[in-house]
Write a protein that binds this DNA or RNA. Sequence first.
DNA 1: CGAAAAATTGATCGACATCAATCTGTGTGG
DNA 2: CCACACAGATTGATGTCGATCAATTTTTCG
Lengths: 236, 236
Amino acid sequence: MINLKAVNAMTTPTPGPIACRSCDLYEVCRLCGITALGENRGVQRTGALRTLRAGTRLYRAGEPAHSLFAVRQGMLKSVDVGTDGEERIVAVNTPGDVLGTEVFAKRVFSHDVVAVQPVVCCELPLSLLSDQYPRVRELAAALINLLSRISAPRPALARGSMRNRVAGFILDLARRFEQRGLDGRSFSLGMTRQEIANLLDTRIETVSRMIQKLNRERQIEITGQQVTLLSLKPTA
Amino acid sequence: MINLKAVNAMTTPTPGPIACRSCDLYEVCRLCGITALGENRGVQRTGALRTLRAGTRLYRAGEPAHSLFAVRQGMLKSVDVGTDGEERIVAVNTPGDVLGTEVFAKRVFSHDVVAVQPVVCCELPLSLLSDQYPRVRELAAALINLLSRISAPRPALARGSMRNRVAGFILDLARRFEQRGLDGRSFSLGMTRQEIANLLDTRIETVSRMIQKLNRERQIEITGQQVTLLSLKPTA
DNA sequence: CGAAAAATTGATCGACATCAATCTGTGTGG
DNA sequence: CCACACAGATTGATGTCGATCAATTTTTCG
């Protein structure tokens, strides 16, 4: 196998930051009087920004919830910890995703959420929502729209052969990035093989073999976590 | 294998009907002025009731959406039809579930929804919602609560060995029924082995074998689609 | 009752898990 | 700067679970 290490040695791009416009929380932020962050002009009023180093936890399951979060840059995983202590990754969270939407019904978070890369996210305290009496109508509509969007059962990632699941995982990431205005042709998987294996309900060796197979078939080009789509296309 | 056919030959119970109180849509209905149906007293004002025979479609993906639905009795499946025409069952819908929650964001339905048993469901036209100006606040809160409840990623059904998936599927049904005040110890699977296999991403023969294995191990007792939990318990 | 669909059961095969060894990259302390 | 340690990733050999092919039985329904 040709060794391309040096080529992209210092490229460890975390996806994002995205434009506020392409974030799922945008309308809600706007109605709360939070002006777009990092857009055209100078200083802005924002929700609190939180930065997380890889491996850091954003919040924990069962913890009382006082905020919504929006991913601005980097990737996180939502983890379910079984009674036996083993952890299952139930979702990957990419820029533009909103975390903590369960708090309106539950008052506490449902999952552990952990950064798998350096992460920047926006924290929107729930108190900011309840302060917006003048705009209840619009705000409620925006929240309903946001929640409705994510209420439909997602097409399960983990179906079919392992080759399909791995390809599906990569395509899902590509699709997400493109929807958010990021580069969906060349990006970092963000997660270790072990984490991908956990998400896809398989083993690290299998993930490695399938990735190498896609690589040999020239469907993708991969070095470490950096992947470039070749013949593998979204919606194919 | 002992033949118990005659014992419960005429018991083909569809789950439900459930009490309105234990339905996810209850608060929303109440605020729309729809009085509980089939409760204490005589005649009531209700949302339209729809009955479906097994195999009938409630709605189709892409179809303009004018209503929410709540399952009152029986079971349905939410189906994703791929570009190649093959269908994947992405969810099973049991009494108390609300269908069509995606319409607030999309205006059209996301999936085909088909009755797998005789079904009775309540139809709540969206026009009834927009008529409730005096109560926007409460109604919006109820909708947000409903949507928030189902917004958290569900623990994936299809993980681990096929034995675990089949057991998990049965336990999931049991848990749902109990949450709605129905019998979670003895009930009908509602679906054919083929449909269960589709949902669990496996084959009909495997489903059959795993069910028989659980039966031989006295974890469950099964005849056709009628199942009784023995040592197999929810949250175990 | 007879036909068609659903379910069960058996035999064989292949994909993925498992066990094990090696390789690569990264960070650390001498 | 280099040697070393360690985690992540790759690759190979072998075993096992579930897919596949095939036949039969059971249930459902006209």
